[in-house]
């Protein structure tokens, strides 16, 4: 090809792209700002846009009953400012209806999580009468603790493995009264308003042999319980006092604090080993907040004793 043809193509391309830039830029800028030319009124109208994201993707979009060309994620532009009815549909999911408002030069962003239609329900394989269950985390896995008319069981969350924890059968009323379960150092600790029980789960083979041992009975009602003191004690608020129950040597307990009100609350921060107490002030009617830092207390006493020695 001769140089003049290269030059010709080059100049043509240059003018073509320059012209395209000159013509298209104002149009794109106007369009970007939301302007749309309305042929009927022969005016520029300010529009808005709707951006739809969904989980899962590829959901069909209906705007005011009209099916949109693009499935989600999608952006619908040039919408006149007003209210619209938005429907998101996909087979196997519940249809999602909502009303949205489009404002001029703005994007209304909709982010929707669609719920799949419930088609089947899974039943656990055993046929015992289930009184109560707790979802709990043990050794980085989720487990379900089930109180039944045949004993206490551990299930994994996909219902595939069933393991008996204890032969002990709690009658239905008692099982239903259990308020919380915690797992600690191969022990399952659970309580209702009156009692605290412990099951040793250290020996997997003899799970079923171990009955649930009651380790504490409250004079009034057990209101709060936390693992504390390096998870070796259970700190319990029984309405009258705060007691620490030794979990390694069952039966050993200490009274930490005498409460002034039955309506008091405690919170134990295991990280800083601090006990927070909301309690009535002595000889008063108002409540205040108290805190006891347990570890410095223990360390102080130990050093005092060493000094005495």
């Amino acid at each position: 090809m001769q140089e003049k043809y290269y030059s010709l193509i080059r100049h043509l391309s240059f003018w073509l792209f320059s012209l395209a830039f000159i013509i298209l830029t104002p149009i794109i800028v106007y369009y970007s700002l939301g302007y749309k030319f309305d042929v009927k009124s022969k005016k520029f109208l300010k529009t808005g846009a709707l951006s739809i994201k969904t989980l899962p993707r590829a959901i069909t979009v209906y705007l005011d009953g009209e099916k949109m060309d693009e499935a989600t994620p999608s952006t619908i532009r040039e919408l006149m400012p007003r209210k619209y009815s938005l429907v998101l549909e996909k087979e196997g999911f519940y249809p999602y209806h909502m009303e949205i408002e489009i404002k001029p030069s703005l994007v209304n962003s909709v982010d929707v999580f669609l719920i799949p239609e419930i088609k089947g329900i899974e039943k656990i394989e055993f046929d015992f009468n289930v009184y109560k269950f707790f979802l709990m985390r043990q050794m980085f896995t989720e487990k379900i603790l089930v109180f039944t008319d045949s004993g206490i069981y551990f299930l994994d969350t996909n219902f595939e493995s069933v393991k008996k924890v204890s032969e002990q059968i709690f009658e239905e009323r008692l099982a239903n009264s259990i308020e919380e379960v915690i797992a600690n150092n191969n022990k399952l600790i659970f309580w209702n308003k009156k009692n605290i029980w412990v099951i040793d789960i250290s020996n997997e083979n003899s799970f079923s042999e171990d009955p649930a041992k009651p380790i504490y009975t409250a004079e009034r009602n057990i209101k709060d319980a936390f693992l504390g003191l390096r998870e070796r004690y259970l700190i319990v608020n029984d309405g009258l006092k705060v007691v620490a129950l030794d979990m390694d040597n069952l039966g050993v307990s200490f009274e930490l604090y005498t409460l002034n009100s039955f309506n008091s609350k405690i919170f134990y921060d295991a990280h800083s080993e601090t006990l927070y107490i909301r309690d009535k002030i002595a000889q008063g009617n108002t409540f205040s907040l108290f805190k006891i830092q347990i570890m410095p207390l223990i360390e102080g006493r130990i050093s005092n004793e060493r000094r005495k020695d």
């Binding site: 794109i28 970007s32 700002l33 939301g34 404002k103 030069s105 703005l106 994007v107 962003s109």
Partner: peptide, 12 residues
């Protein structure tokens, strides 16, 4: 946050 111009800038 909701500006159409910003939204279109990301597209361009």
């Amino acid at each position: 946050k909701d500006s159409l111009a910003l939204f279109n800038l990301s597209y361009i």
